[in-house]
Amino acid sequence: MIEVRFHGRGGQGTVVASILMAKAFFQAGYYVQSFPLFGVERRGAPVEAYLRLDKTKILVRTNVYTPDHVVVLDPTLLEGVDITRGLKPGGWILINAPEAPPNLHTYADYKLAHVDATRIAIRHRLGTRTHPIVNTAMMGAFARVLGEPPLEAVMEAIREEVPAKPEANMAAAREAYESVVLLGPVAEAVSA
C-alpha cells in the first residue's frame, strides 16, 4: 500500500488534487482512498489531504501518519510546516517550485522533484495571477514522479471531473508531466 500526503493552502485545490489522483489511480486499476484532514477548512490556511493506493481493497480507515510520498502545492509552506513529518526514508517530495529549495540537506533522506506549476497554471489561465490553481499541473508532475498512473489516466480523471476549463487543465497537467525536474535522492545530489 502506498500513502501520499498533499500539502497546500485552503482554496488551492489540494483536496481536489488528492481526489482526482485517486480517480486516476482507480482508472489505472488501483484500489484507492482519498480524504482531507478532518476538521475545519479556511481559505489560505495550511491544509492537508491524503491518498492511499493498493492493488487490493484497502481495509485501514485511519489517518495517514507515515506517508510514502509528499506533494507540496505551495512552496511557502516549506517554512512553518514540517512537510517531512512521518515521511518514509526514500520517499519522494514533489514541490511546486521553479528550482530546488536552497536548504537541500534538510531533505537528505528523501528524493526530490520540483515543477514550476504556478507558472504553468498562469500560462494556461487557471485561476488568477495572484491565486493560480496549480492542482492539475501537480497531478501531471506527480504521475511522472511515481511513474504511475499513466498520463492518460490523469487526463481522463481531469476530463471527467473538472467542470471548468478541462482542456486547459489537461494541457497544464501534460506540460507539468513533461517539465518536472526529478532530482532523485537528495543525498546523492548534495554530495555530487
Binding site: 481526489i19 485517486a22 480517480k23 482507480f26 484500489y31 484507492v32 482512498q33 482519498s34 480524504f35 482531507p36 478532518f38 484497502i58 480507515r61 485511519t62
Partner: peptide, 8 residues
Amino acid sequence: FLSHTYEP
C-alpha cells in the same frame, strides 16, 4: 472516516 472519504 467514512462520510468524507473517497473510495471506489
